[in-house]
Amino acid sequence: MARFLSWLLLDRDAGRRAAFVSVILIVVQAALLAAAAASDNALWLPGRDIGLLEHPGIPTILVADSVALALLGFAARRFLRLPGRLPVSDAPSSRRLLRRAVSRGRSVLLLRGRAGALFWFAAGVGTLFWLQNALQTRRALEFYGHDVFDSSAHPASYVVFRVVLWGSWAILYPYVAVAFLGISGTVYRATATLARRGRLTYRAFHPDRSGGYATIGDISFATIMAILALYTSLAVVIVTHHRLNILQISGLAILSVALVLLTFFIAWPVGRFMWRRQRRERRDNYRRLSRRPDEFAALSLMWIGSGTSYSPYAKYQVVLINGARLLPVVIAFARVAGAI
C-alpha cells in the first residue's frame, strides 16, 4: 500500500497521476452503477420513487470522490515543494526546518506511525456509518417514504452501491481526511514556527503576486475545496430525500466545522505575517511621504495598493473560499425555513 501511495502522491508527476486515477475512479463507479441499475430496471422508477438517473445525489457523490482525490494530489505536490519555494531568511536552518516538516508530512501520506492508526480508526467509523446506511436502505419505503434505486428491492443496485459507498466512506474519505490533516497541520506548525522566529520574508516582486506565498494559498485552497465537494454532495442527498437522519446530521456537523475552521487555520500564520507586513510598509511609506516629497514612497504605496497582494490566495480563490464559509449558514437557514 505504501508503494502505491508513494506512486500516486509522492513521486514525480504524481499530481497528474492522482488526477488520472480520479477520472478512472468516477468512470468505473458510474459504469458499475449504470449496469446494475439497468439489470434491475431501476434507471427510472415510477411516481415519487427515485431511480438512478433521477437521483441528483449520485453524480455529486461520484464527482466528490474524484475531486477529493485529485485535489489531494494537487496539494501533495505543492506541499513537497515547500522547502524550495517558501520565502524565508536564515536560509540553511530554515530550509532544514521545512525539509523536516515535509518528511513528517510524507510519513502521514504513507500512513506510517500514528497516521496509520488514525486511518484505521476513521475507517472503522466510516464502516459503522456504512452499516447503518445499508440497514436503512433495505427498508427504503419505511425510512424515506419512497423507493430508491439502491433499496433491497433492487438487489444488484443495492450490492453495487454498497460496495461503492464502502470504498468511499471506509477507504477514500478516511485516507483523504488523514492526508489533508497531516498536510495542513504540518504547514501550520512549520509556518507558525518560522513566523515566531522572524524568518518569514516577503518578496514584493515575486511572479505569484503573493510575495512568494501562493504555494501556501494553493494548499489551503485545495483542502477547503475538497471539503466543500463532500459537503455539497451531502447537501444534495438531503435535498433529494427531504429527510434528515443521524448520518446526515453527523456528516453536516463535522463538515461544517471543518469547512469554517480550515478556511482560516492553514494559512493563518502566513496571513497574519503578510497583514502585519502590509500595515508596516503602508505606515512607513506614508510617514516618509508626509515629511517631504518622496517618489519612491509614493510608488511603494501605489504598488502596495494595486501591484501586489498581501494574501497567499489568488483573487478567484478568495471568492470561492468566502462562498465556502457562507455555505453552512445558507444550508442551515434554508433547512430551518423549510426550503430544502
Score class of each variant (00 low, 15 high):
Val88Gly: 03
Asp90Phe: 09
Asp90Trp: 06
Asp90Arg: 10
Ala91His: 05
Pro92Lys: 11
Pro92Phe: 10
Ser93Asp: 11
Ser93Gln: 07
Ser94Asp: 06
Ser94Thr: 10
Arg95His: 07
Arg96Phe: 13
Arg96Ser: 15
Arg96Trp: 13
Leu97Cys: 12
Leu98Cys: 09
Leu98Trp: 05
Leu98His: 13
Leu98Pro: 10
Arg99Phe: 09
Arg100Tyr: 03
Ala101Leu: 00
Ala101His: 06
Ala101Tyr: 00
Val102Ile: 05
Gly105Glu: 02
Arg106Tyr: 04
Arg106Lys: 04
Ser107Tyr: 09
Ser107Val: 04
Ser107Asn: 14
Val108Arg: 01
Leu109Met: 15
Leu110Glu: 01
Leu111Glu: 04
Arg112Glu: 02
Arg114Gln: 04
Arg114Ile: 02
Ala115Cys: 07
Ala115Asp: 01
Gly116Ala: 11
Ala117Cys: 11
Leu118Arg: 11
Leu118Val: 04
Leu118Tyr: 08
Leu118Lys: 05
Phe119His: 01
Phe119Gly: 02
Phe119Met: 00
Phe119Trp: 02
Trp120Phe: 14
Ala122Ser: 11
Ala122Gln: 00
Ala123Cys: 11
Ala123Gly: 15
Ala123Arg: 10
Ala123Ile: 00
Ala123Asp: 02
Val125Ala: 09
Thr127Ser: 12
Trp130His: 11
Leu131Gln: 10
Gln132Arg: 15
Asn133Cys: 10
Ala134Gly: 12
Ala134Gln: 03
Gln136Val: 15
Arg138Lys: 14
Arg139Leu: 07
Arg139Pro: 07
Leu141Arg: 04
Gly145Ser: 06
Gly145Val: 02
His146Ile: 13
His146Asn: 11
His146Gly: 06
Asp147Gln: 14
Asp147Gly: 11
Asp147Glu: 08
Val148Thr: 10
Phe149Trp: 13
Phe149Met: 02
Phe149Cys: 12
Asp150Pro: 12
Asp150Thr: 08
Ser151His: 01
Ser151Thr: 01
His154Pro: 07
Pro155Thr: 07
Pro155Glu: 09
Pro155Gln: 13
Pro155Gly: 12
Pro155Trp: 03
Ala156Thr: 05
Ser157Asn: 04
Ser157Gln: 06
Ser157Tyr: 05
Tyr158Lys: 03
Tyr158Met: 04
Val160His: 09
Phe161Leu: 08
Phe161Lys: 15
Phe161Val: 05
Val164Leu: 13
Leu165Tyr: 04
Leu165Thr: 12
Trp166Leu: 07
Trp166Ala: 14
Ser168Val: 03
Trp169Arg: 08
Ala170Phe: 02
Ala170Met: 10
Ala170Thr: 04
Ala170Lys: 01
Ile171Leu: 07
Leu172Arg: 03
Leu172His: 03
